[in-house]
Design a protein around this nucleic acid. Structure first.
Lengths: 336, 336
DNA sequence: TTGTACGCGTTATCAG
DNA sequence: CTGATAACGCGTACAA
């Protein structure tokens, strides 16, 4: 690989001058700048970011550790993150935790060694010693989507409580009473919050909350299927299943279809997270949509601020209910 | 940040010894190793991969430039790549080209500066000067999914010609004659190959190939919708639309639904690439499934070989047809 | 078995 | 405005 030395020799200047040109320092004659640039072009020189980082103590790189790259929510999130990062001049090193704390820690460790300038983390579990240490050491860190209580770390997430309340009212208005949910794991803030919002909304609507209607999954397809199976095996199966994310919805759909059940006649379905293909199902799936793009962008911007040592606050956006037909339709709203 | 020096001081040894312990050199006394490890733990020392890379001229990092992170095909591919890379001890720096050659080049440039050990590229266009230069400079490079003719670069891809031929025969057996396709851009090998395989299969089946039934999209949802619209606006619209990838299928579905058309009665649909939710549509979508996981794994392994300077050959896996019901059903195969 | 010292490619400081 | 040179943190050849 050609280095500044080669360029310097070719241009007949010192390495210092080459460096100055490369970092467009103002203190350099147009003529020499010209010569250096010519040498750079002729040699096809490409600056070595590794050496540069060693010297400047910055990599212009941020780590992104997501829960599950197969989850459409995280995919869309990653896309937004990547987009905003590019705009700000950062590269993304990605880690897919696969919802496993050990994998999450593996990536955090690797990213720390790589000396990323900052870290965007969607925690997959309660606080691990490594994460606690990372916070203590002061590495710029922002939690995304999920948060960890008791840690002074800015979080960018969406609040779905309002949308969940609206959903429950919608279900009640449709005459449903036996409403079940398959939520995420209680270890995750998103799992907990959605369950709490759900039970609170049920009570607010005067609907009964039964323990056996509260299933906990792990945000992956298999657990959605298993949860739906347990629910449908109940002596008194629910009218409605509210699934905690898109992947589990896929699993629940598999189970419902395998049993030959019809939606919403035999069992209604609603999903936290909206997916592009939900509109193509028959009936289209009622869902709660998060402002995913915005979440990703805001997180990157927050992290960039932290990297530049400016204080940043957490941001909470709001999710919204998208009513479609998978929970039934209001009387009188059908064809006359 | 604590460095080897700090560890050395703390352990009462030289930096060389610390380094030896860290790279578990055999020539070190258990006792001193113990002391060093203790110092490492006490100080919370984490080795600096940047400095290490500068010295060893290797980053244990590979670049992955994909066509479009929103495309489920690439998402699944990325997941497999990431998985295999972790197994082999590599980190992934990801770039989302968004199907734009300029973005592709942006990432290639960045990754070269970062000194990735190798590059996995899904080319978004014909050969760019940058890509040509990269090949010439000898950076370990493997093309994934798509290839670029005229370049000596190993490619890992799936051949869909057989599956496409099987699909066309399936369509013919079902009595379809006016078969249209919305393929990828002719600039991409995958676009070209799928179109060629399709027209060849049509001829082999004695079916007419009409130019106006040959639409070209760009592998994104919008172009699938636009292509479907043009096809359905034809004075003699096709019986079947064969869509070149999952994202365009989503767009085509949008258009079909917007027009209130029914599948397969009004127009049949088949898709290159299989998606998890295809089974939940009514009717389920007939698709061509690529061995995506295997593609990703093989690509990483090939790249790892190249990085270690071993010669590697291209690998061609085969896609397979998954018949479902979106193109109609064989007579007599329905309920008696 | 361990320590000393150099160099990887850059940037930044300090003279000139 | 430009050049010489130290330093970033690490791995390794060489010496002890």
């Amino acid at each position: 690989m050609t280095s500044v030395k080669d360029v310097a020799r070719r241009a007949g200047v010192s390495v210092a001058t080459v460096s100055r040109v490369l970092n467009d320092s103002p203190t350099v004659t147009p003529a020499t700048r010209e010569r250096v640039l010519a040498a750079v072009a002729e040699l096809g020189y490409r600056r070595n970011a590794v050496a540069r980082s060693l010297r400047t103590d910055a990599t212009r790189t941020i780590g992104l550790v997501i829960g599950d790259i197969l989850n459409p929510f995280f995919t869309e999130l990653a896309r937004a993150v990547e987009d905003e990062a590019r705009t700000l001049g950062y590269s993304i090193v990605i880690g897919n935790a696969d919802e496993r704390p050990d994998r999450q820690d593996h990536y955090v460790r690797t990213l720390l060694e790589q000396r990323v300038d900052g870290l965007l983390l969607c925690p997959t579990a309660e606080i691990t010693p490594l994460v606690r240490g990372t916070v203590r050491d002061g590495l710029p860190l922002v939690f995304l989507d999920r948060t960890l209580p008791g840690l002074q770390v800015p979080t960018v997430r969406a609040d779905g409580a309002g949308a969940i309340a609206a959903l429950v009212r919608h279900l009640r208005d449709l005459g449903h009473e036996r409403i079940a949910s398959i939520s995420g794991p209680a270890l995750l803030s998103t799992g907990r919050e959605r369950t709490e919002a759900f039970t609170a909304a049920m009570r607010a609507c005067g609907l009964p909350v039964r323990d056996r209607y509260l299933e906990a999954g792990d945000f992956r397809a298999g657990s959605g299927q298993a949860g739906a199976a347990r629910l449908l095996d109940l002596p008194e199966p629910p009218d409605v299943i509210f699934v905690g994310d898109g992947l589990m919805a896929l699993g629940a759909l598999d189970e419902i279809r395998a049993r030959g059940l019809r939606i919403p006649h035999d069992v209604a379905l609603a999903c936290y997270d909206d997916l592009p293909w939900f509109t193509h199902l028959d009936p289209p799936v009622t869902a709660i949509a998060q402002p995913v793009q915005e979440l990703g962008r805001r997180a990157v911007r927050a992290l960039a601020e932290r990297i530049e040592d400016r204080p940043v606050a957490s941001v909470v956006l709001t999710a919204r209910l998208v009513v479609r037909r998978s929970c039934g339709e209001k009387e009188g709203s059908g064809p006359a």
